[in-house]
């Protein structure tokens, strides 16, 4: 293992995955169902941040908004317009639900970017639950709204008849792969960025070990961390955006299953 070889020879520490370990906040016991862990802490922080932005920030109800209220209204308008444009006018009933998903993901992503933070959305358990919630909601809404007509989503009526069963099979598979790709995309993006940053961070103390090599490697890795961090800020927002807009797209399929 390359990392082991490094740590044996030079003393560099490569543990890019350690930041994702779930551990209890108080004590060292096993992680049970209701243990207060770092997951709890960072989810609570995102809830507090959301309340600070969306409730405290708008408590003035001012017609001419201040800074915080502007951001809250911006988020509101952004998601509202997305729901209306992508999922259709009759999907605005799902707006609070989609807003919840977006706000949670965006705040979890951004809070995870703080140094020494724990990124809740980098765990497959969290993103899989989010994606399955969307999947179940969309499927239930589709069957409630259209009954068996929802299955028309898989029957591509514009294709030639002999091709339709094949296409139906492909459509069904892609329908059930949706929650997988939906969750792994978010989790993978979050984890990849953080792990890469950790790998570069492990190279940074090289100058303490060998001055000659360190003069080359340390500045490079510091610059790389800064660059990756900038990219991660972008990714943190874009992944929340993508998760939300895909939710809207799936919702549109459920509300208007005609191909």
């Amino acid at each position: 293992m390359a990392t082991e070889a490094h740590s044996d020879e030079g003393g560099l520490v490569f543990h890019p995955m350690d930041q994702f370990i779930v551990k209890p906040l108080f004590g060292d016991g096993p992680v049970g169902m209701f243990t207060i862990t770092n997951v709890t802490l960072w989810m609570a922080l995102s809830v507090i941040a959301i309340i600070a932005l969306m409730v405290m920030g708008t408590s003035g109800r001012s017609t001419i908004p201040g800074r915080v209220q502007s951001i809250g209204e911006l988020a509101y308008g952004f998601i509202y317009k997305m729901v209306e444009d992508v999922a259709g006018k009759d999907a605005v009933g799902f707006f609070p639900y989609i807003m919840t998903l977006f706000m949670f993901i965006v705040f979890a992503n951004f809070l995870g970017l703080l140094p020494a933070a724990f990124t809740t959305t980098s765990h497959i358990a969290v993103t899989a639950v989010l994606a399955l919630l969307v999947f179940v909601t969309v499927t239930v809404v589709g069957f409630v709204k259209h009954g068996m007509g929802f299955l028309g989503l898989f029957w591509v009526s514009s294709a030639p008849l002999p091709l339709r069963p094949v296409l139906a099979l492909i459509e069904v598979i892609s329908y059930f792969v949706r929650p997988v790709s939906h969750s792994i995309r978010l989790m993978g993006n979050m984890m990849a960025g953080h792990a890469v940053m950790k790998v570069f961070a492990a190279f940074a103390p090289m100058i303490l070990l060998s001055t000659g090599l360190g003069l080359l490697v340390t500045p490079l890795s510091v610059i790389a961390i800064a660059a990756i961090y900038g990219l991660e800020i972008l990714v943190a927002f874009i992944q929340a955006y993508v998760f939300t807009i895909l939710t809207c797209v799936y919702l549109k399929d459920a509300l208007h299953p005609a191909h």
Binding site: D18, V22, G32, P96, T120, V129
Partner: peptide, 27 residues
């Protein structure tokens, strides 16, 4: 991978549901 440590899944899912419900009601 800590992500594949199934012993923590229950904990994460529980707190995630709590968080989502709180955010949903607040929003």
């Amino acid at each position: 991978m800590p992500q594949l440590d199934f012993s923590t899944f229950g904990n994460q899912i529980f707190w995630l549901m709590v968080t989502l419900v709180v955010i949903y009601f607040v929003l």
